[in-house]
Structure formats: C-alpha cells, structure tokens
Amino acid sequence: MKILGIETSCDDTCVAIYDSKNDLLICNYKYNQHSLHMRYKGIVPELAACQHLSIIDKIINIILSQSNLSIYSINAISYTAGPGMVSSLFIGAAVAVSLAFILNIPIIKVHHMEAHLLSPFIEKSLNIPRMNFLGLLISGGHTQLIQAKNLGNYKILGTTLDDSIGDVLDKIANLLNLDYPGGSKISVFSKKGNIGKFHFPRPMMHNSSFNFSFSGLKTCVSKFIKKYNNNLQSLCDIAKEFENAIFDSVILKCIKAIKYTGYKKIVVSGGVSANIFFREKMILIMNKYNCKVFFPEIKYCTDNAAMIAYMGYLRFKNNKQYNIIVKPKWSLEQLQEF
C-alpha cells in the first residue's frame, strides 16, 4: 500500500510517499521558506500560505517523478489536519482531499503532534516500543510531556504555560544577532562559551506540576545579553549557560514524569530534538534512571511529510468522506473525539 502524505501546518511545504508493504519511505521532499521569513525574524502566516499554494503541485510532481510512480499507483492520501496555522492547513487539506476525490481513494486526517510523537519509528515499524511510554514533544510551537497509553489515547501531563522551547531559542538567538531559525545557531555559538561564567534559573523546578515556563528565563537572559552586548566572549558564555538552563529544565521535568508514571521508555521528538547537545545530555542522564530514549533521525525532527504518510498508514481506514477538515487548535487528548 502506497500512501501519499502532505504536510503544510506551518511554513514548510512537504510531500512524501510511504510504502507499507515494504516498510519503506519511497520519497520525502521538503521545501522550506526560511529565506522568505528570515527578514521578519519569524513566520508571516499569509506569506506562508501563499507559498504553499504556489509550490505544492510542483512538489507532488517532483516526488512522483523521482519515485518513477504514477499518481494512479497511490492507494491513499493523508494530510495534516491540525494543529497549525489555519491558512497553511487549508492549502494541504484542500489539495489532499481534491486528489483523493479525483482518484476515488481513502483520505486520512492526521494529527501533527501524534505524527511527531511516532516519527522515531519511520522505516522502523517493527521497533516501535509497546505503548505505555513517556512522550516529550519539543518544537517551535509546543513543549509537552505526554503519557502515551495506546495509539490515539494520550494524556498530556504537562505543557508550557507561556513560550514554547523552540520559540525561546529563536528569540534569544535573535537577541544574539544570529540568523533565523535560531536553535541550531545557538548551539554553534555556545560551543565557544565557558561553563560556569554565568548562572541562570531552572524555571518551575520546585513546582509539583509537570508544566513548563520559559518566559522568566528568556527575560533574565535578555538582560544579560544587553549588559554584555559589546563582549563577544561573554555572549558566548551566556549562550552556553542559557542552553544548559533551558535543557536542564526540560530534563528535570522528564525525570519527575518517569518517576510518576514508572515508564522506562521516553520518546523525544519535534524540531528541538535535533539539538545534538540536548540529545547527548538527555541520554546520559536517562541512563542513570535505566530509561531508554528514542529520537527521530535528524531529517525527521522538523516538520516533514514522511511522518504524515507513516501516521496515515498507522491510522488507515477505508474512509472516502471527502470533506475538508482542519483543526488549528487540536489537543492530542481530543484524538478519539475527531
């Protein structure tokens, strides 16, 4: 069975084809809009939607050509129905539903965050851990701790009360005059920094909840950046401590969650999970708690259609109701209601 996946939840136009028979990703294409949004230091929804509209048909033709496949060899189509930016979601949904209607094949609505959650197992279906694992979703839009009970049955243990971790990384990078998107740039910049020159708070560590808060840390770090703005080495030292502080905050909450759930498996996904410093630190600390950590391949950390096509396979039903549905705000806990 070959499933065409379409992802347009934010600013990346992504299309992929997954072959469930051979557990193989045939093709995965991503067109990012970083150069378009860079001048604004963030994503402009209207521009993102217009770019999706202008490029998506070309990308579908590209992956079919690269795969030596006809559109008529596709057996089902899956698309991101939410959460995300409504104008961008509608482009992918309209194209997916229209194609499915024309081809008279099933259409599958996919939850973007559930797809991220299971992205470490793309092309590795046989290695999916049995459910009952802790999920950590860390990206530009989300920071969540999730109790995964079974497919479609999730409990959100904790979420961010203000900024997401990816958003804070981008904003601090901007203050350091680093290019957008800033998460990966901070890691390179911080390698020149020294440990112990500064100390920043680890927010909500003495709070009994599993929630996150990064706005206070962001404010604290921004004040130090302004103070040492003319000292390059001090800025590198600040970046080093900031990276330590924000990832310590996440890892300490994970420790609290594994003690609470008793789970010995944690699945980490989302754009920020690509950070090598974080990966190494997370694995090292979780080993002390006999907890196995699963990460996606780097190419599947940020938004991609491979995870949408793969999730479409996992959730396949012979559904031919060609109604265009998007849910910009869609909690993982509401999956069974959709």
Rank of each mutant, 00 (worst) to 15 (best):
S54C: 03
F121E: 07
Y79G: 01
S269H: 03
K185Y: 10
Y40A: 04
L64I: 02
G5D: 06
I195N: 12
S249L: 01
E123W: 01
I266T: 09
T219L: 11
L145Y: 04
S67C: 12
L161N: 14
A306P: 02
K253V: 10
F210E: 01
L169N: 03
G262R: 10
N194S: 15
N150G: 03
A173Q: 04
A245F: 03
M311T: 12
Y79P: 00
G312E: 04
I255G: 01
F200A: 13
K171R: 15
T143H: 08
N231Y: 12
Y289E: 13
S9K: 05
S87H: 05
S269L: 00
Y79D: 04
P129M: 11
H52T: 07
K320L: 08
V15C: 14
N230M: 03
L69T: 09
L176R: 08
E241H: 09
Y313W: 14
N231E: 14
K265G: 02
R279P: 11
G166E: 02
F200R: 06
K192M: 13
S67N: 03
L169R: 04
L145P: 00
V268G: 05
H199Y: 14
N32W: 03
I60Y: 00
N229K: 15
K30D: 02
E333W: 05
I238N: 06
D303L: 07
V44G: 00
D12E: 15
L136E: 01
M286C: 15
I266A: 04
L284P: 02
G271A: 12
N231S: 14
K223W: 06
I298H: 12
L69S: 07
